[in-house]
Design a protein around this nucleic acid. Sequence first.
DNA 1: ATTAGCACTCGAAGATAGAGAGTGCTAACA
DNA 2: TGTTAGCACTCTCTATCTTCGAGTGCTAAT
Lengths: 343, 343
Amino acid sequence: MQMEERKKKVLEAIIRDYIATAEPVGSRTISRKYNLGVSPATVRNEMADLEEMGLIEQPHTSAGRIPSQIGYRYYVDYLMEKQSVTNEVKKYIRTNLAHQIRAQKKLVWGAVKLLSQITNYAALLIVPAYSQNVLSHIQLLPLADNRLVLILVLDNGHVEHQVLEIQKALSQEEIAELSDMLRQALCGLTVDQWKQMNIQALSSQWHSRIDLLREIMDSIEDALTVEYEQKLYLSGALNIMNQPEFKNVEKVKGVLSLLEEQQIMEDLMLKSGEGPRNISIRIGTENSYEDLSACSLVTATYQLNGKVIGTVGVLGPTRMEYSKTVGLLEYMSDLLTEALKGK
Amino acid sequence: MQMEERKKKVLEAIIRDYIATAEPVGSRTISRKYNLGVSPATVRNEMADLEEMGLIEQPHTSAGRIPSQIGYRYYVDYLMEKQSVTNEVKKYIRTNLAHQIRAQKKLVWGAVKLLSQITNYAALLIVPAYSQNVLSHIQLLPLADNRLVLILVLDNGHVEHQVLEIQKALSQEEIAELSDMLRQALCGLTVDQWKQMNIQALSSQWHSRIDLLREIMDSIEDALTVEYEQKLYLSGALNIMNQPEFKNVEKVKGVLSLLEEQQIMEDLMLKSGEGPRNISIRIGTENSYEDLSACSLVTATYQLNGKVIGTVGVLGPTRMEYSKTVGLLEYMSDLLTEALKGK
DNA sequence: ATTAGCACTCGAAGATAGAGAGTGCTAACA
DNA sequence: TGTTAGCACTCTCTATCTTCGAGTGCTAAT
């Protein structure tokens, strides 16, 4: 988009000031604080133009201007300078995650908590549904009496377990045999694939125990479904209450309710953009949910073995510190990708 | 506490009405709606007495009365009739939990969700820290390459797993040997006991691999610590925003922040009372946190093998439907105890 | 093209007034 | 002696009005 240099400066000043103060910005403020070397009157003329272009708007006639959604969009696309993470923050993050990298879940939790803490917005992380993941290992293990534990390992590094209650006790050998059979039949398949698998095909090898087999299959599905429900990591949701635009309980409730809807948040976060690290910025109604019309969602993906395996993001008011947030998310994306390497 | 019959009736009427409407109750309303057969003037006299006794209070001179915290306390102790769960609700709960009883975690989640949904308050469930639980089974299992998975089973029926990254691959035999060794050394001990165990004592049998051993011990601790952080189950926290006394964002924030503090909620919930099913009602400041001074917490315990292994509860405004809530929690307590039987 | 000046607009905040709910007190009553 | 009707009084709530000031748009001068 073409625009005179000074208009850009005015727009940027308005946005920066509004982000900082949450108050409509007047012409006087801009000419004084963001020394553009022109008088308020000149600024007013520019503002009138910017308003006509739809980049800023007036809450009412005698108030200053606030950025419109389009204004923010223009800002993040053309004006904003991404702010790199300071070394201090980098160090802080690394120290806090150093002990967490053993287990993927802990790592991911730690990352989300840090993000919300540093930004003061809500932070989220999504591990996509398992449907496309390949079962890389499966094992049945006897516990006590008539209890078995089923271990499932997926190619994205996640491990799940599920406890099985069975009717008749099985011998060690039977368990081992069954375990082998499951391994041969299911390993290498995606979750989607084995879900559609005909249990008959399996049971031909073990028809004597078709009930047990069915129970096991149900149990596997259970294990991956429990996880399905737990694959959204959310931290700092209450931070939105610190924002002056969320002084109203109804608005807060709208946002928090939506945040609890795993499915919706997943959909929102998985539509990732094209930029580097797949950074995506969705502003206001671009999130396509009424309740998020006053929020912006910034997301980045992270990878394992060159494949995107998750999305991490920050949800704040549209009046968000985009430049900082983007920098931080890029850093976090790289960090996660790095930490997962070789797992 | 001794009190004239009519005073009791007036107090109960005030509390019932206030619970239903959240509005101060006037003498006219009481004499009309709760046909006591006396005039408003008489009711006013009773109210004056009740106020002097500290059971009710006036927000301001020309408003009706609202119950004081002491009033609620008197109500739940002496006046309230516990309301049994309707068959309809019982059926609803049973149907919804029927498929969940396989795994303890799922059962517990299901119960909490149902509670919040039925009451429209926040529901919580706490599984106490593992420190007093006995490790009943431990097993090491090879995954791929240099990864092991460690399975821990506690006597309260909980199963945990933890993935281990090791430096040098171990043979099947070595793993089995190590697994046996761990089992012999640790099974039967409480979590507290083995935490204090001297790693040297263990390593005497396996000094060649003391590093690995240390890593494993750390990992066990990790596994139980992760769980430590996840042993509070919370659902319907946003329901408090439906209460008229929580129209203020600051109040909501106070409560929600506290609800996220696992440690605090644990402390609150584990101080359980003496009644049947250990039903405990804590009203307002009895919860000893400023942020909960407008809330009441009703809890019940549930058991496994005659031993209390968890507490389930409901958090709502002090203006809570105590009679319904208590009945529901008793039912839920029995149901959980029943469902866990024999596990 | 920029700027100073100025009349104008509109919301925020405070002041004022009236309505209504509910009380406490008094005196009458059963 | 306990209960009730009556009544003046208190205090919140709501609406209306006023004032204040920030910020604007327009015009004319530079």
